[in-house]
Structure formats: C-alpha cells, structure tokens
Nucleic acid binder design. Structure first.
Lengths: 233, 233
DNA sequence: GAAACACTTCCATGTTCATCGAAATATGGA
DNA sequence: TCCATATTTCGATGAACATGGAAGTGTTTC
C-alpha cells in the first residue's frame, strides 16, 4: 500500500533524535536560525543543514531568508499536531544532569505547546476553569458555559471571533509532563495570546519555557484563584 | 532533552515501512495473527516477528495468545490517533498496479479509520448530517443540534450514553483520501457500530475496506439522502 | 576589497538496522 | 507419537543514514 510508505516517510522525519530535537525547539511557535537549531540539537551546523533540508523538502518546515540568516519554522499546525500526538504517548525518562533538570523543571512548570499554554500552569489554569464552571468537560472537549462567556469577555477575549477559526474550538490536550489535561484549540491559543498581552507571562529567549511575571502571580491569584510561587531564577 | 529521544523512539516505530504496513492493517480495529500481518506487509514471518516484538515492547501493540496463534492489536486509541495524525498530513502517491488500484479504490470508497467510518462514504455521511442541520460545524468540531438529538434517537443511538465516554465527543477527522472531513470521536464510533448492527455496511475479511450492502443503499438513501452505487465486486 | 559570519556542499567513515535462510520451540490435529 | 502449522531465535549480510572535517558559496561589516 503506497500510503504506508508515506506514513513511514513522515514518521522517519521525527524518528531521528537530531530532527526530533529541532522540531521540539520549534514547538515554541517561533522561527529560529539554522545556527541556533544546531546548538540546541547539539550537532554541527553542517549536520543541522542536512536535516533542515530534509524537513523542508518534506514540507514539515518552512524557511525564510533574511540576509545571511535562514529562519526555520514549523510548516503548519498539522505538523505541530503530529508532534503533540507523539508527545502525548511518549513515556518520560529520568533526568541525567542538573542543568537538564533545571530546564526540564522550567518546561514542566510553564511552556508553550506550539500555540497554547502547557505545563503545570496550563493544567492548573484548566482545572481552575473547570472548578469555577467556566468550562465543562464533555468527553475530551470543553464547552464554554454561560458564565464562561462572561468570564472571557471580562478578560477581553472575543469568543465569537475565536469560533470563526477553522480549527478545534476548545479541546483537551494531554500534558505529557503533568499527565493531566490542559486546554488547547482556538480558545487555548487565544488565552495564551491574551496572557502575553497582559504580561502575566512572558516568553524566554532560548527556550519554550514560559516565565510567570510578578503581575502574573497577582493576576492568576485574583482571576483564577491559583497560588503560584515564583521560581528563584 | 530526554523527551526528544523518546519522541524519536516512538516515531521510529512507524518510520519503518514494514511496521507502518502492520499498523495500517491494524487500523481496522481488529486483531490479526502474526502470519496474516506478515503476508499483508509482504515480509517473512521471522521479519514480522522481529517487528511485532519491537512494537509490543514499546507498548504500541498488544498480543493475545490462543493456542498456536498470536493475535496482535493496537494497544490503545492514543496509538491509533498518532497514526491518524500522520495519515492526515501524508501526501498521496500514484498507484503502481491494478490490484493495488482496486484495493485502494475500495479503501477510498468506505473504510474504518480505527473506530469510525472514513472514505467517500464517511465524508458524504458527514456532509449529509451537516446539510440536514443534524450537526453544526464549530471550528474543527461538530455540535449535535436539537434536530440531531432526535435524529440519533430515531437511529437508536443513545447520545447521553455516548457523552459519558472519556474521549472526544464529535470531531472532524481529515480524510486523507478525500481531503475533506469525516465525523470521528465517540459519535463517529457509535455511528459505525450502529450501521454495522443495521447491516447497512459490513466488514470484509482481509481489508479495512467496508462493503455497502443492498440494505445499506436503501437505508442511506432514505435516512441520509445519499445516492450510492454498489461496486461490481 | 578584505575579513568575518552564516550556511551549504562534498566526501569519507562508522553505526544501525531490516532482511532472510536455517534451525528451534510451542501447539494442535490425526 | 508423529506430522503439520505457527511462531520465534540465531546469525550473517547488505543497505541506509547520521556525522563531522574540509572546502565552498552568499551576505554583511569594516
């Protein structure tokens, strides 16, 4: 069956640890240069170039050239979705170094899962939304309640506009680090963007971990009834 | 990052054409013997044994022994979901033989997508449900309308019971052969089971293609307003 | 225009892995 | 008990692929 050989071709893109590392970095939803990706994947630039070309050819990534720099990004949400699917069934392994433990901890605490919030923060936000009856769980989806419509309006998130997007509206996404669900889909994306606007969270330069700001600590406590502690970094 | 090496490990299970072929066969939702899977994947039994052992160890498959036969099946819906994700972004390739063309055609016409109906039949059923306002499209999900509640009740599908299942309720699944959406999730599963009960469709012995029965032709016309033609097989 | 930087291409090397023939083991039927 | 079938194990083989050193190309800075 011709279909199988193509499925294996796509899967083979991710099966190589170096390419998986590159894709993982790009799951922060941003564009990165070839040199950055080489460093993050701990391979030489020529090896990175080889892998990047392969993923460009397979249309898993896109590239934009600006002067001497080539910026690489994930081609479309479908590719990110495949990565998320794989991450959701991937077993965890023990940590091997202190530095790695620190980064892993930051990643577990709060991170982007391509275009929505994940990690302990993502999971606790989702639980708060459920506990306050802002969303209700139906199977593996969430339905926004009447109270939720008001809640998001107060947060300045226009749900009517969110509903027009051609994507899952309000899903559960299995958080591989917490082994519980966080909120994904169009609502998850809108929430992430709004929290960045409010500057309750901020992106960090070299990682897809997310930092919670002092304003965020207050905002999450007041709005979501979540007590968080700031990291000592 | 330790996570990446595990993502690549999982992806490597599917990256091998033989294992992809085995998984594809098992996407019919049934259990198959090692000898059957070897034949379908066009490899020797010892090669199949090697691959099956690998996928058992990785908990992608399960095995049940009955006498001299070993029956293999997909371990859980999460694994099937990963396969579906990969299939949804896999480009199609040209057909290489007439026999393959015939089977491909049957697969395109109607098949199981692990636990729901896919192919041209799946897509047309979904379109009919939308056109008759039985379901409404919200992003990449479907919401069952008031009229839909009655429709499914008439078809003897208990939606209240379906809603209790711990899975996506009513999703779009991108049909790789039609390049349009068919209905998946718990409702998709319930619909497949009901159509089998009604004997409007039936499973075929050696393929995940689905056959439409003469009763089915009448039922789909009366209930879904779909004109289908029976294949000459 | 030269130097530095970002990135790619070429080539050799080493590693990994899928494959099957042959043989062995386990189970069922006559 | 013997034979057939299903499946697994062992070992050898060949192919595929990731890697980095060296060199080359394109762009930016001085």
């Amino acid at each position: 069956m011709a279909i199988n050989s193509n499925v294996s071709l796509i899967a083979s893109l991710i099966s190589e640890p170096s390419r998986a590392a590159i894709l993982s970095v790009l799951m922060d939803g941003r564009m990165h240069t070839a040199t950055e990706l080489a460093a993050k994947a701990r391979i030489k630039p020529q090896t990175a170039s080889f892998h990047l070309a392969k993923m460009i050819e397979a249309q898993a990534l896109t590239v934009q050239q600006q002067g001497r720099h080539r910026y690489y990004g994930i081609h479309n949400p479908e590719v990110a979705h495949v990565m998320e699917s794989l991450l959701s069934i991937t077993p965890l392994t023990p940590i091997k170094s202190l530095n790695q433990a620190t980064e892993d901890q930051a990643i577990r605490r709060a991170r982007t899962c391509y275009d929505h919030l994940a990690g302990n923060l993502g999971v606790r936000l989702t639980e708060s939304l459920r506990n306050q009856l802002i969303v209700e769980e139906v199977g593996k989806e969430y339905v926004v309640t009447q109270k939720g419509e008001a809640f998001f309006a107060n947060l300045n998130i226009d749900l009517a506009q969110v509903r027009t997007k051609r994507r899952a509206f309000c899903l559960q996404c299995l958080d591989w680090s917490e082994r519980r669900y966080h909120l994904a889909g169009a609502v998850g994306h809108a929430l992430l963007e709004r929290l960045l606007e409010l500057q309750w969270i901020e992106r960090l330069p070299k990682t897809r971990a997310i930092r919670i700001t002092p304003d965020g600590l207050i905002g999450f406590k007041d709005t979501f009834s979540i007590e968080l502690t700031e990291t000592t970094t």
